[in-house]
Design a protein around this nucleic acid. Structure first.
Lengths: 243, 243
DNA sequence: GGTGGATGCGCACACTGTACGCAGAACGAA
DNA sequence: TTCGTTCTGCGTACAGTGTGCGCATCCACC
């Protein structure tokens, strides 16, 4: 070994005591996985890439995570932790709380569109601590609003299912756009010929397309669409509550 | 070449004219892919396995399908084709049609739980012929019900989003159960300790769990839960229609 | 100084999607 | 009949995947 290759002996170069600051931890791994997923998408998440992103070998991760499936469960619960729901005390406050909570869920999905493709395969996501916390909070809101215990759960499932369904569709759309590297409007423009061909023989959708072409702000359109369905669901729940 | 290895010359042994009946076709490939997905789940779908299931090499499939992603788009549209929606003519017939349609979608998802994990990644599924047909049909129902043209689309999205969201959750649950090889009840039983541990410190969910334990028929429970949210959504839409 | 447990890593295995180029069969034209 | 041309299927190959196994290293404690 030449003299240049010998490790420099100094307090500053000596490796840190590992027990104080282990090089890897489950929390770090999960956080880096989320970052990787956000930046590069769901296909880019491999144990090797995640390992090198953490300056570690791929198999080192297995000391902190049982396998890839478990990592994915952790990652899903992690982003659920970003959701906030207000208390919703006060009269009719439940509805405002539901709106804020629903939009918080949607915002999370749009920030992390890859969750949409994982929700259908992660079976026990509701056991994660963050999901438990979210559910408990929502149950509190709906119970104090006056929903009987067994119905509160159904009501929450209804709202959350709607949000997840709409979010899944939006996320799939946004993911394909992101892969193209274009803006949403440019992408829609480029897609137009194919769409116009597809709507041949479908008069209602042809008319819909004609209306859509006049619109120019796809983001506002999606916002309004989301809000419409949410309002209808909450109308239905409110009517039931006043029955 | 020994005499046993020589091909037997006869009308019956002579290979069929290939142009009349190509050994592989896109429709056959897609149908077999659906079968494979139903039986073995989404992880089992690889080009090689699909090829051998069709008595063909893996790369032969690429003559009829551009790549794996395209195959998945085709497969998703294929199962959308199983959905039926009644006409819904007559007074208030739209609501009955919506219920039947929604339950048809849910049944499809429960028959093919793997779609749930694909819906979040297939961006342009709505361009598929079967999805177009379904949308057109639904639009017809809602427009004749009295929804103005631009609102009909939002209303349909609302209902379908709810169904997809609930279906996704159910499918994820059923997929994990299927992987365990147990019945839904046995699985829930085996999961109970973990759930009881998880609900510590979450009083509402603890109470919910206590109620759930008394119940014995998980299938009926899921059916009712689905129907509850669907009814609330349709209530909200109906109120809007009568406004 | 010794011991025991935790941690990271290199290797290996079976498997994946798919690009490439070849072989044979069917067809239209000469 | 014979010659391209086109279509179809396949074998090989390459880069990349999840992960089981065993080794080397380090820390805390006796």
């Amino acid at each position: 070994m030449s003299i240049e290759e010998q490790p420099i002996q100094s307090v500053w170069t000596r490796p840190r005591r590992k027990r104080d600051q282990p090089a890897l931890s489950q929390a770090q791994i999960v956080a880096e996985a989320v970052r990787l997923l956000d930046v590069e998408g769901v296909d880019a998440l491999s144990m090797r890439r995640l390992g090198t992103a953490l300056n570690a070998g791929a198999t080192s991760l297995y000391r902190h995570v049982a396998n890839r499936d478990e990592l994915i469960e952790l990652v899903v619960d992690e982003v659920y932790g970003e959701i906030t729901v207000p208390d919703g005390d006060g009269p009719a406050g439940w509805r405002e709380a539901a709106v804020v909570g629903a939009e918080s869920v949607r915002a999370m999905i749009l920030r992390h569109p890859w969750v949409a493709s994982l929700l259908g395969s992660v079976g026990l996501s509701y056991l994660g601590p963050n999901v438990m916390r979210l559910n408990e909070r929502l149950l509190g809101v709906f119970v104090t609003a006056g929903f009987p215990g067994d119905e509160a759960e159904q009501a929450i499932s209804a709202v959350i299912s709607y949000v997840i369904g709409m979010g899944t569709t939006e996320a799939a759309w946004l993911t394909t756009i992101a892969k193209s590297g274009q803006s949403e409007r440019d992408w829609a423009e480029r897609l137009r010929p194919a769409v116009e061909e597809a709507v041949q023989g479908h008069p209602h959708q042809r008319e819909m397309l004609a209306r859509a072409v006049a619109e120019t702000d796809p983001v506002r359109l999606r916002d309004e669409k989301f809000r419409y369905g949410l309002d209808r669901m909450l109308d239905g729940l409110e009517a039931r509550l006043k029955r």
